[in-house]
């Protein structure tokens, strides 16, 4: 019999029911159908601090102001819809619990930066996806297809594991000061996705991708600020991946 289970069962039975707190959400609103100016608006909620920021946004939208607009789908950090700036830091609203945000103070929520604002927390994602598409984010091979699977050792598979986790939420790219200043920069997410293929032992287009990233808007623009690594909700070591791409460009070994 598992004693961990018994301990847990006892501990749970004693736990108090969840309690509600009052928290203020200070949200950056923008609706060009109404006004060309963006402005802050405060909403006070009675809410369980163990809930997600996404739950708070839903509570506002569903109960108070239906015009509040944001993207979301999965609600558990998998689909990448709801990257936003929460208390000045890029995060997924569905993966951020209110209790972790110091809810005694107003919690600020605004759209991610560096992409054109369309309405409230919604930005134009097209330039972000264009940069992604530009780095050839797909496996390239030559010769006849094998009849069975291509073989890959567990070590070779591990080599690019970290960068396969990307959900294209743009939290990293839109936290990068270089990207804010110059939207032409590919940005961390595109480089992460190039890394995913450059270091895949099955792929044969590493050189081409490196040439793309050698461009003036490419990987050399990165100033190793580490914002991206901190912002990634998937825990990808983004800066490390960018460094590995830079090194591959110098040594031409990958």
């Amino acid at each position: 019999m598992s004693s961990a289970v018994m301990d847990k069962a006892e501990a749970e039975a004693k736990q108090p029911a969840s309690h509600l707190i009052t928290a203020t959400f200070r949200i950056r609103r923008f609706n060009p159908e109404v006004s060309e100016e963006a402005s802050w608006e405060d909403f006070q909620l009675e809410i369980d601090p163990k809930e997600r920021v996404l739950d708070a946004l839903h509570q506002i939208k569903w109960e108070i102001d239906g015009t509040l607009t944001f993207r979301r789908s999965c609600a558990h950090g998998i689909c990448g819809s709801d990257a936003m700036r929460i208390n000045g830091r890029n995060r997924l609203a569905c993966k951020t619990l209110i209790k972790d945000l110091n809810p005694d103070q107003p919690i600020t929520v605004e759209a991610i930066k560096g992409l054109t604002l369309l309405k409230d927390l919604v930005v134009d994602m097209e330039p972000f996806f264009q940069a992604y598409r530009d780095v050839m984010p797909f496996l390239v091979t030559s010769g006849n297809e094998p009849t069975r699977e291509r073989l890959q050792s567990a070590e070779d598979r591990e080599r690019f594991d970290d960068t396969t986790k990307c959900i294209l939420c743009a939290a990293c790219t839109s936290s990068c000061p270089v990207f804010w200043n110059d939207g032409q920069y590919f940005g961390p997410a595109a480089i992460v996705n190039a890394h995913r293929f450059i270091f895949d032992s099955r792929d044969e287009a590493g050189e081409q991708r490196l040439e793309i990233l050698n461009d003036k808007d490419g990987v050399w623009r990165c100033r190793t600020v580490f914002n991206c690594t901190e912002a990634c909700p998937r825990g990808i070591e983004v800066t490390k991946a960018i460094q590995e791409v830079k090194r591959a460009l110098i040594t031409r070994r990958f």
């Binding site: 797909f138 297809e145 094998p146 050792s153 567990a154 598979r157």
Partner: peptide, 9 residues
């Protein structure tokens, strides 16, 4: 797999 899916090995 041929399209590039990184299965565990």
């Amino acid at each position: 797999e041929k399209m590039g899916l990184p299965f565990n090995r």
